[in-house]
Design a binder for these strands. Sequence first.
DNA 1: GCGTAATATCACTTTCCGCTATGAAGCTGG
DNA 2: CCAGCTTCATAGCGGAAAGTGATATTACGC
Lengths: 316, 316
Amino acid sequence: MKLDSEHLEILAAIVEQGGLTEGAEALGKSQPSVSRSMALLEARIGLPLFEPGRRPLRPTELGASLARLGGRIHRANKEASLLVQRYRQGLAGRLRVGGSPIFMDGVVASMIAEFQSRHADVQIDQSYGYLDQLEAGLRNGGLDVAILPLHPGQVPADLDFTPLLSGNNVIACRAGHPLTRTRGITLNHIAPYAWIAPPADSPLYRDLQRALKSIGQEDFRVNFSGGTLASIQSVLTGSDALTVLPYSVVFLSRRTIPLEALPLKIDHAERQLGILRVSDRQLPPAVRQLTGFLLIECQRLQARMDHDQQITRRRG
Amino acid sequence: MKLDSEHLEILAAIVEQGGLTEGAEALGKSQPSVSRSMALLEARIGLPLFEPGRRPLRPTELGASLARLGGRIHRANKEASLLVQRYRQGLAGRLRVGGSPIFMDGVVASMIAEFQSRHADVQIDQSYGYLDQLEAGLRNGGLDVAILPLHPGQVPADLDFTPLLSGNNVIACRAGHPLTRTRGITLNHIAPYAWIAPPADSPLYRDLQRALKSIGQEDFRVNFSGGTLASIQSVLTGSDALTVLPYSVVFLSRRTIPLEALPLKIDHAERQLGILRVSDRQLPPAVRQLTGFLLIECQRLQARMDHDQQITRRRG
DNA sequence: GCGTAATATCACTTTCCGCTATGAAGCTGG
DNA sequence: CCAGCTTCATAGCGGAAAGTGATATTACGC
């Protein structure tokens, strides 16, 4: 025999409110409705839930016990409603973000931290990877969104790409590096310095090759490679080595780490840093919240960078 | 917004069983039924519960969370069903028994102990009182049943009385009391001994007066009064005092306490020890179980007492 | 691609929930 | 002890939704 959970919830309300009429009011229903519900429940279990012939309706022992269980059901149900509400508003849930390591560490991580401070119940699972892995993750449902630099032509048909920031790379070095005091930097100035290389399978590594080729330096010396952004930053600030990084990463790093970008134009693919997601899948609200948040933050960041570059240009 | 608890339970079953069809089977419903229930639930919360376009139906994060709550609801509901079942069989519940002190302590308590060892989940609230209080308790719902000695003519119209034992009283003394070795006891033999009196408002006290009057002893010396059965037993065994007790109480006490009944016929009201209850109120199953149990136990006790008395008579 | 198994949809009946109106039954104060 | 009030039960009715079998659709494995 299966009891109707709704009936038990109504019973709980009646017992708690101390009367059928009050219970009905608390539930937002009419008195006859709850009366009949209780009659049905009593008929099903075949035992009285209330002492017969008593005006301030008093539950029997069984009625009281069932009311307690009804209360438990009610609380669970209410919690479910709340969960849905919070989930709707993007205040709860789990979301899985994948992205290219440097950009995630250098730009996105701090934004995610800010996002999480406002959405405490959102659990974020972050992972690293490049285009192929991220694409696969998106397709098999392992990822909700991916954040990476991408050329508009590279976007697969079934995926959607929302640009966040221009993806131009710069040659970065420690603040106070001899080259920062050099006017009109050329290949000859750069040649003596060793390079820090991003992971060999990363687009950034290819960018590095490309960039150096574009300024005429075909072969170059790598004295550190394979590290994450944190390692690269450490090596960079502790030596006179150079590396290639997205300008946005250098820009944000400067808040805490003494880095600078060399005013040397390098050729780079017309990529943009942005968010990749499956086109037709509707994203959970928490994910939409995050992407919206990142969009705004990146717009502000872009504005600050543009502003900064104007000043630099004027100065330089 | 209020979610349907039933829907959440269905969701839990589907997630647990790993499929809509299996879930439906586990719930004993048809597949289209649960399919539509889930469609309704999804429509109400406006968010997907399952990853779209996946064959081994996989819940979304929200779906999984709601399924957990659905499981909680299901467990509470199942517990309610079980409670009703046990309650039906008299294996659960609370019952309130009131009774006259001596009889409750001397006869009923041990039977209740036996009953409770078989019905562990039945909570028994015992209280003491005489006819007036017990009647009131029965009428205002504070008591389920009362156990007391009653004359058939005393039974109120709206109450029902089920006899358990003959209520004849005897004069009791310690085993080894001088009078137990006396043949053909008369008033003269008894006269020197002091009496232990039951509480002054108890029927037993009136019985004592009546009994002594019946054997010709109008005035008597009381050297202990007001105690419960346990006290009376202590005083009785530690002195040569006499008292009046129901024979059944003496009979059962003898198992552990050296008491004897004097073979002296005393006049006593034609009362019977029995169970009093409200006629038209249907009793909770646990109460019916207890009364049935007491009935059987008392029949056995009565048989043993009758047997014993025959032997005593033959011997005496 | 095709077959298979799982899920969604359809058409229809039954159950039950919601309401208003109204009747019956306790409790209360004179 | 009766009148009046409050509280609960019942009746009748419309609509939402759950139940069913039959059937279309879709994803997955080969």
